[in-house]
Design a protein around this nucleic acid. Structure first.
Length: 240
DNA sequence: CTACATGATTTCGA
DNA sequence: TCGAAATCATGTAG
């Protein structure tokens, strides 16, 4: 059981097996940085585990020799068979091994907790960069009539935003549903992006072509375009 | 600290 | 398997 967690076995973080299994399911492709933290914690647990294990081992040996000595002393006053000695030793070892089992169990628990804490992507959520949001929003509002990027488009967006395809899919899923939920507010955002595009670049074909290929205009013009409903009402749009 | 924004996951249906 | 909707858990502005 512990071996599966990479705690028991020899040195080397093998826990990635189960870990990757859990995180590979969805958008956690950037897990390199977080993983190193996880690994560090895991190896810490492993170290403590081995430390304790060794301590028990040592205590066990000490205790055994102690008992042996006692028996030897006693053998002067009464006969003691080797069998009896062996039985004694066996009992001691059994006791200690059950203690070790407990150690294993608690270590296992610690690993489980660590894993759920670190590997659950929801707990590691990071907001996308402003640029990424910009790119995604731009695409979304440019294709409001059909905000369903194809696989290739998703990949292109993912590349430009520095996120995974899964994350792009998540984003569009969230965006669509949340846009629908309050069209009123989002409409302003739509106008804003439409204006941006008009200001930023050449004419466009609304749907069909993969559309945005240039990076977003760095300039912060946005204002200056008498956009109705843009006068600081509620949502300031860009990014957040 | 609270409320809201937002990315990720889960559930359900076609 | 993809997407809609509901839900979760975190980030962050107030």
């Amino acid at each position: 059981m512990l071996i599966a967690e990479g705690v028991a076995g020899p040195e080397k973080g093998g826990g990635a097996g189960a870990a990757a299994n859990a995180s590979a399911a969805a958008g956690a492709g950037d897990s390199a940085i977080e993983h190193s933290d996880y690994r560090a914690k895991l190896s810490q647990i492993r170290q403590i585990y081995h430390q304790e294990l060794e301590k028990y081992e040592q205590a066990c040996n000490e205790f055994t020799t102690h008992v042996m000595n006692l028996l030897r002393e006693q053998s002067r006053t009464r006969p003691i068979t080797p069998k009896e000695i062996e039985r004694m030793v066996q009992i001691i070892h059994k006791k200690f091994s059950s203690i070790q089992m407990q150690l294993k169990q608690s270590t296992c628990e610690a690993v489980m907790i660590l894993r759920s804490r670190f590997l659950d992507a929801r707990r590691r959520r990071r907001n996308f960069s402003k640029q990424a949001s910009e790119i995604l929003n731009e695409y979304f509002y440019s294709n409001l009539s059909n905000p369903y990027p194809s696989e290739e488009e998703k990949e292109a967006l993912a590349r430009r935003c520095g996120i995974t395809i899964n994350q792009v899919s998540n984003w569009f899923g969230n965006k669509r549903i949340r846009y629908k939920k309050n069209i009123g507010k989002a409409q302003e955002e739509a106008n804003l992006y439409a204006a941006k595009k008009a200001a930023g670049a050449s004419p466009y074909s609304m749907s069909g072509t993969p559309g945005p290929m240039m990076s977003p205009p760095p300039g912060e013009d946005s204002m200056g375009y008498g956009i109705p409903g843009m006068n600081g009402s509620g949502y300031s749009g860009v990014g957040q």
